[in-house]
C-alpha cells in the first residue's frame, strides 16, 4: 500500500512536470506580451529593458528552469495586466471558485447518489422513469444555456435570486467567504445548480447502472434469501459494491467542476479564478494563464491520488493483493 502510494505520487509528479512544460511553452508561442504591455509610444530601449526585467532574453532551458523554480515556491511572476504577483491575484480569487465548486460537488454527489439508488430500485416505476427522462436534459443541455435559463426564470421573471456576483462576503483574514451571509448564499444557489447539474445527472446515471448490475449478483440474491431488510440489501450490500467505479468517475468530475467553473463564472460574473482566466486570455496575460493551468492540474492530480487511495479503504481484496506483491 505504501509502495503503491509512493509510485502514484511519483507518477503525479511526472504529470505535473509535463503540464508545467506546456504551461511554460505558452510564454513563447502565444504572441509577444511586450507588445501588449507597452503602449504605442515605446522605444526600442523600453522594449529591451522590459524584456530583461521579465527574463525573456534568457535561453529557453534557463527560462523553463526559472519557471519551475518559481512554480514550486508558488511564485508565477508578475501579471502582465495587473502588474501584481500572480500568486496574490489568484489567491484572492480562489476562495470564490472553491466555495462554488464545493457546494456544486456536494449537491451533485448527494442528489446524484440518492436519485441513482432510487431509480435503480424502482426501475419500472413512473417516478423513476420521469427522473431518467429529465436527466437527459441535464446531460445534454450545455452549461451556459442552463445558467441563462435559470437566470431568466429565477432572477428576471420571479426575481427571487440575484443574477450575477457573489453577494456580501465575510473576510476571515486569508479567506473571503460568501457562505456566511444571506446574500452570499442566495447568490450561490443558481451558479451552484448550473455547475453541478451535469455532474449530478452523470453520477445519478452511473450509480443507477452500477446498482442494476450489482442487484443481479448472487450475493444480493443470497442476502434476500437470508431475509435481510430491503434497506440493508440496498444500502449495506448493494451500494457499497457500486462505490469503486462511482468514486472513480466522481473524482474526475470534481476536477472537471473546478476546471469548468470558467463557463459558469462567466455566465454569472462570479468573481473566481475561472473569470480571471477568461480575462487573462483576452489580454494574453500569460503568467496568470500558466499559473491557472498549473493550479488545475495540481488539483486533478491530487484528486486522482486520493481516489486511488480510497479504493483501498473500500475494497479489502486490493489490500491483500498489494501487501502480497508490493512486499
Amino acid at each position: 500500500m505504501l509502495a503503491f502510494a509512493i509510485r502514484r505520487a511519483f507518477q503525479s509528479f511526472i504529470v505535473l512536470l509535463v503540464v508545467g512544460l506546456v504551461a511554460f511553452s505558452m510564454f513563447n508561442f502565444v504572441g509577444d506580451p511586450i507588445d501588449n504591455m507597452l503602449g504605442q509610444e515605446r522605444t526600442d530601449a523600453d522594449i529591451e529593458r522590459l524584456r530583461t526585467q521579465l527574463g525573456l532574453d534568457q535561453p529557453f532551458p534557463v527560462q523553463y528552469y526559472r519557471f519551475l523554480e518559481g512554480a514550486v515556491q508558488g511564485n508565477f511572476g508578475i501579471s502582465y495586466r495587473q502588474g501584481r504577483p500572480v500568486s496574490e491575484v489568484i489567491s484572492e480569487r480562489l476562495p470564490a471558485t472553491l466555495e462554488l465548486a464545493f457546494v456544486s460537488a456536494v449537491l451533485a454527489i448527494i442528489f446524484g447518489v440518492a436519485l441513482g439508488v432510487f431509480t435503480a430500485i424502482r426501475r419500472n416505476g413512473w417516478a423513476a422513469n420521469t427522473i431518467m427522462t429529465l436527466s437527459l436534459i441535464g446531460v445534454s443541455l450545455p452549461t451556459f444555456l442552463i445558467g441563462i435559463l435559470l437566470i431568466y426564470l429565477f432572477a428576471v421573471e420571479l426575481g427571487w435570486l440575484p443574477s450575477f456576483g457573489r453577494g456580501d462576503v465575510v473576510d476571515l483574514g486569508w479567506w473571503r467567504t460568501g457562505l456566511l451571509t444571506q446574500s452570499g448564499l442566495k447568490a450561490l444557489i443558481l451558479p451552484a445548480i448550473t455547475l453541478g447539474l451535469y455532474q449530478m445527472t452523470l453520477i445519478m446515471r452511473l450509480v443507477r447502472s452500477e446498482m442494476l448490475e450489482v442487484l443481479r449478483q448472487d450475493y444480493i440474491r443470497f442476502a434476500r434469501a437470508r431475509g435481510l431488510k430491503d434497506k440493508s440489501v440496498y444500502f449495506r450490500h448493494a451500494l457499497k459494491n457500486t462505490l469503486v467505479p462511482v468514486i472513480t468517475v466522481t473524482g474526475m468530475q470534481l476536477g472537471a467542476i473546478i476546471a469548468f467553473a470558467i463557463i459558469t463564472e462567466t455566465v454569472f460574473q462570479w468573481p473566481g479564478v475561472g473569470l480571471l482566466f477568461i480575462n487573462a486570455i483576452r489580454f494574453v496575460d500569460i503568467p496568470v494563464m500558466a499559473a491557472y493551468l498549473m493550479l488545475i492540474s495540481v488539483m486533478f492530480v491530487s484528486i486522482n491520488l486520493i481516489v486511488d487511495l480510497l479504493y483501498f479503504a473500500i475494497d479489502p481484496r486490493l489490500r491483500i493483493e498489494k501487501s502480497g506483491s508490493g512486499k
Binding site: Q217, D218, Y219, R221, F222, A223, A225, R226, R236, H237, K240, N241, I314, D315, P316, R317
Partner: peptide
C-alpha cells in the same frame, strides 16, 4: 427457510 446457492465464490458479499 434457508437457501444455499450453487457458487460459493459469488454468494458472499466480497466487501463485508
Amino acid at each position: 427457510i434457508g437457501m444455499v446457492f450453487q457458487d460459493p465464490l459469488t454468494s458472499l458479499n466480497p466487501l463485508l
